[in-house]
């Protein structure tokens, strides 16, 4: 077992990293050309006074601290607090900042799933993703297959994720840009009305905030 399982944090699945990705089998392969380039750039920028080692490690710490748990907390707050939900849907960046999440200068738009509408996010041109609320994107989000097909045949793509939506549900696909990111506000599962905000957050999966999944059932 790579690390202890923490029951209170459902994003730390066994065999998965804190950012929700499978661990690499081995990080100590032969030194590559591109790794040498990274080392060289970092050292040169530090020597020339452009960056400090502390800034780089601090940025990595901040990156590691961002996980889908951040987005899940925002979603759960929206489920229990209608006024917050209204603020989230009108300006997701400032509503997220209310909860202490650093969104940076981005425009962030929350799109709400309803019984009639299911939302899906993609970045067809590159890999734009609400990383401040969800952490770094999963590899599939950056693949040619997802980027190409999500806007062409979203229902077929969703079926590959195990999501078979009835024809009565409209699927809306949102194509992100470097300056404008989306996050899906999933519908609150039936039967969860009496749960606490923290319990609700545990129902919210990463994929439910991308639109390739639904929240867990209580």
């Amino acid at each position: 077992m790579p690390h202890d399982h923490h029951d209170h944090d459902h994003f730390h699945h066994e065999g998965m990293s804190p950012s929700g990705h499978p661990y690499r089998a081995d990080n100590d392969g032969p030194l590559t050309y591109w790794q040498r380039m990274e080392i060289a750039i970092r050292e040169l920028l530090i020597e020339k006074g452009q960056l400090t080692p502390a800034e780089i490690s601090g940025q990595i710490d901040a990156m590691d601290a961002r996980s889908p748990a951040n987005g899940a907390a925002v979603v759960a707050r929206a489920w229990v607090d209608p006024a917050f939900k209204a603020r989230l849907l009108s300006d997701a960046a400032s509503a997220s900042r209310e909860m202490g999440f650093d969104i940076g200068p981005l425009n962030l738009i929350a799109v709400e799933n309803t019984p009639q509408t299911h939302n899906l996010i993609v970045c067809t041109l590159c890999s734009c993703y609400p990383r401040n609320l969800l952490g770094l994107p999963p590899d599939w989000y950056k693949t040619r297959e997802y980027r190409s097909r999500a806007v062409r045949e979203p229902r077929a793509v969703l079926q590959e994720f195990g999501l078979d939506l009835p024809d009565t549900v409209t699927v809306r696909v949102h194509d992100s840009t470097a300056d404008m990111r989306y996050i899906v506000l999933p519908a609150q599962p039936e039967g969860s009305e009496d749960m606490t905000e923290a319990e609700l957050a545990d129902l919210v999966t990463r994929d439910s905030m991308i639109g390739t999944g639904l929240p867990r059932q209580p």
């Binding site: 993609v122 067809t124 041109l125 590899d139 599939w140 693949t143 040619r144 297959e145 997802y146 980027r147 190409s148 097909r149 999500a150 806007v151 062409r152 793509v157 590959e160 994720f161 194509d175």
Partner: peptide, 11 residues
């Protein structure tokens, strides 16, 4: 600019 192109199953 690959949005809408044909492609295989999502890995």
């Amino acid at each position: 600019d690959m949005g809408g192109q044909a492609a295989g199953p999502v890995p």
